[in-house]
Design a protein around this nucleic acid. Structure first.
Lengths: 360, 360
DNA sequence: TTTTGGCACTCTCGTGTCCAGAGTGCTAAA
DNA sequence: TTTAGCACTCTGGACACGAGAGTGCCAAAA
């Protein structure tokens, strides 16, 4: 159901009973946060087995690397592999109630700008899961342009304003190699608005190359300038790169006992600030739809060793344009978090879609 | 030199020697972070006095509420009043070297947009002081408008884009009570661009009221609509209110021993997220120029009880438009931090000024 | 063959005790 | 007014101790 990098086959040694006990153990550990002992497990399992029997099974599970004990005389807790098996094959998700879905939707629906939409989605994720919410900003490449505007700030500095189909406003300042007059700018803007509106950024950029070529051949000076300035305007800008995702509810993470040490917290929060590492993980989820889960070290990012990331891509008109999710302790309530992330991704896609559908 | 809410007169009991000892004690405490004992103080003071003598003076200082001991057999550390006296009358500031100032300026000067400028200023503050940097976004009221643009998104939703003199782009979506046609919007924009460009927001809004009144009397329908839509567009929007200051280097605060407990950290970071409380403090610094300091409880905000805030207003053309500063532990190196905040405020003002000076 | 009771063993954690170190306050002498 | 001396206090680390929880293993029971 939830695609993982490599779905590990259930070890043949692992009979039904062992699986069930593992499931109960993980559930209990997630609930209590304390290593689970044989007595407690015997009671919870509902199998009418004595602690001694349970101990044998636990010993097997430990041998298989699914659970581990912090020290000799403590109970057991799941390893990353244990969590993986749990999440992939043992988990029974608890789907959201219709009313909850509607409530989420009502919050998203009422947002005006796409930016607010992303922020709201992130906030909702964090509030509902009580973890840190995370929404990656949509890929700009696939956004459809609605309007261009060039505004001269000074001789050499031109303010470019670009409005997308969804009503998002991007702006940046470009400094072309030579001064442009107001009328030149106006005609460049007119040209662009006439020809490229309704296409997406990638298409526009590709088309521009071709037209620049053609214009050069025909010595159409004016066209060359328009294309030149547009090229600068459309160059992938790194300003946005500094804020590639919207994070919220980080504070929720301070509650969980896992991150008790200042070191841990510091590392995690620095990772949030650095952004690159997190973006790399999110990028890996852009390819396929559906919920993806990274547990602890699986993400391959030291700062997140004690954390899990649950993500889902969101799409507009069937095309994936971004990823959202939550970050929380490995010991999170997956059966609740997974459907929430899943639904939120779908709702965000729908909300974005709704905004861009409205005719101009 | 540094205006405080109420400059406390130096208590007459406090002779030169006591003052000197207080100064040394505070300096040493700021440096070491440990309560200062009589022996250490005797050595540092350079007065050739025995620890026993020092003890007598310390006892007096304690009686005056300037220092305090965490327990019987520990050294003394400054109280808030002690810090206050230190900062107001004993402190010898260490001015920045010219090269450092130039370095700061070179970072600010190269920023394109005002937004980047604020972020850079905040980052510089935090990096240079190793504390949390804080830059309040300029008051919008006094910003001069350069350009208006209305873009219909759908029947009822209009995207308003407003560019300020400094090249900052503000945008929001308004939903007027009745649909406006594209040509109506165009003429409204034309009207506004023709009449109000070059004025600041407050002036424009006031003028609008009057003109709306006149237009009504003369039954100028078109004017009424333009004014109506402009009114909506200029209404103070709360979108910006959610991000009223730019914060950076929060992580630096995790280093200081004062904030060892998770509780403290949590409270502080929640205050950063809430924003309101911090904004209130910053607002109090908007009135007068120069460096202001709030020590511990002086700010009147529980989450900041262990912290000091050092701020300075920044201005453009002599008019104060915002505040910046740093937040750090009460035990911060004031003599270094104060000049940094002071200079950065001046440089930020100059940089903003430079951007808006460039002719259109 | 599987399950169970019993038992010795181990590890944590909270408590209590003890001691060195640092610093104070007070008093009497310089 | 300053200083030396001394008794006193408080912290924090080291150590021991015991209760509690849980394990592993073995031999008996099912």
């Amino acid at each position: 159901m939830f695609s993982s990098a490599m779905l590990p086959a259930i070890p043949p040694q692992l009979n039904e009973r062992a699986q069930h006990l593992l499931k109960i153990l993980v559930e209990r550990y997630i609930g209590e946060g304390l290593p689970v002992g044989s007595r407690a497990l015997a009671r919870d399992a509902g199998l009418n087995l004595s602690p001694a029997t349970i101990r044998n099974v636990m010993s097997d599970l430990e041998e298989l690397g699914l659970i581990t004990a912090p020290h000799t005389s403590a109970g057991r807790m799941p390893t990353v592999t244990g969590y993986r098996l749990f999440v992939d094959t043992l988990l029974t998700v608890r789907p959201l109630q219709q009313s909850q879905v509607e409530q989420l939707w009502s919050h998203l629906e009422t947002q005006d700008t796409p930016e607010e939409l992303l922020e709201t989605a992130s906030r909702l994720l964090s509030e509902v899961t009580r973890l840190a919410g995370l929404v990656m900003v949509p890929r700009r490449e696939s956004q459809i342009v609605r309007h261009f505007e060039f505004l001269p700030l000074s001789e050499q500095r031109i303010l470019v304003i670009l409005v997308t189909q969804e009503g998002e406003v991007m702006n940046k300042i470009i400094t072309p190699s030579r001064p442009f007059s107001a009328s030149e700018l106006q005609s460049a803007a007119n040209y662009l608005n006439a020809t490229v509106v309704g296409k997406d950024l990638r298409t526009i950029r590709e088309g521009l190359q071709r037209e620049l070529q053609e214009a050069r051949e025909k010595l159409q000076g004016e066209m060359i300038h328009a294309a030149e300035i547009a090229g600068l305007a459309l160059a992938p800008d790194d300003a946005k790169r500094r804020r590639p995702f919207v994070l919220s509810g980080e504070m929720n993470l301070l509650d969980c006992a896992e991150l008790a040490s200042m070191e841990q917290v510091r590392g995690l929060f620095e990772a949030f600030q650095q952004r690159e590492g997190i973006v790399q993980i999110l990028d890996r989820c852009l390819e396929t739809a559906g919920v993806k889960i990274f547990i602890g070290e699986e993400a391959g990012y030291r700062a997140l060793d004690q954390c899990s990331v649950v993500t889902s891509a969101y799409s507009i008109n069937g095309e994936i344009i971004g990823v959202l999710g939550v970050i929380g302790p490995t010991r999170m309530a997956y059966e609740r978090v997974i459907p929430i992330v899943d639904i939120t991704a779908k709702l965000l896609g729908a909300a974005l879609n709704q905004k861009s559908q409205t005719p101009c």
